[in-house]
């Protein structure tokens, strides 16, 4: 390897130039990989696209599901919106919902709201820990369970830990698909899973399947 004295200076110049060039380029590279505004806009578009699970129940991206069929979505202001998922909504049908009062504490995996029909009531679990800061006064099982059908908002201090325990993306879709299969089995126990004739379940599946025992069926799915 040949070294000559004078080449030390251009070598050092190149070294420092390369290091500075790297640092400058890294800023642009980092921004490119992170996607910036373009990626955020695309994510927003993606999240607005409803994804279907097994053809029966739908789920928008950006929603985290609790296995007891409640959902949580982190809003831009840091608060977490909570509601019942599409399966829970269709399972119980149009029914009265009792939501916690503003200021009430809720705990992940503990009963936080209930659906009632006369003397029978079934609880659903909170998907996150925190304190209720707002309640949807028009709370009822809604055709838009992830939008206007939201139930309450929570200030969640342990959000990161809570979200790790929830399902999102394809894992959440899988939960709804599994539930769809279990319902299909109940509708047609002898045949098992068969190709459906194109119809979708009507609202109030539990009432239609189990009659007065609807609450037991709902408890089975809500894990309560």
């Amino acid at each position: 390897m040949s070294y000559d004295l004078l080449s030390v200076y251009p070598a050092k110049l190149l070294e420092y130039g390369l290091a500075i060039g790297y640092l400058v380029l890294f800023v642009f590279f980092w921004k490119y990989v992170q996607g910036g505004k373009l990626a955020a806009a695309r994510a927003a578009v993606r999240s607005s696209v409803l994804r279907h699970a097994g053809g029966w129940f739908h789920l928008p991206a950006g929603v985290h599901l609790h296995p007891g069929h409640t959902w949580a979505r982190v809003e831009a202001d840091g608060l977490v919106t909570v509601g019942m998922d599409d399966l829970a909504t269709k399972l119980v049908g149009p029914i009265a919902i009792q939501v916690p009062a503003v200021g009430a504490p809720v705990q992940q995996g503990e009963a936080a709201l209930s659906v009632t029909d006369g003397a029978r009531a079934v609880s659903l679990m909170a998907p996150v820990d925190g304190t209720v800061v707002a309640v949807n006064s028009a709370a009822k099982t809604h055709e838009d369970p992830y939008g206007a059908g939201w139930l309450f908002r929570v200030r969640a201090p342990r959000l990161t830990a809570n979200l790790r325990q929830l399902l999102s993306g394809s894992a959440a879709l899988r939960l709804l698909e599994d539930a769809s299969e279990r319902l299909a089995q109940r509708m047609n126990p002898e045949l098992g899973a068969v190709l459906q004739d194109g119809g979708v379940p009507i609202s109030g599946i539990a009432q239609n399947l189990a009659g007065d025992g609807w609450d037991a069926l709902a408890r089975e799915f809500f894990l309560s």
């Binding site: 070294e15 390369l18 290091a19 890294f26």
Partner: peptide, 25 residues
Amino acid sequence: GKAGAMVTFAYFFLKLQGVVDGHAW
């Protein structure tokens, strides 16, 4: 892939730096 992009980007420049440092251009 995101992590890989960052590390390979740094490695690419380290490789170039090695050439300059060794006066091997």
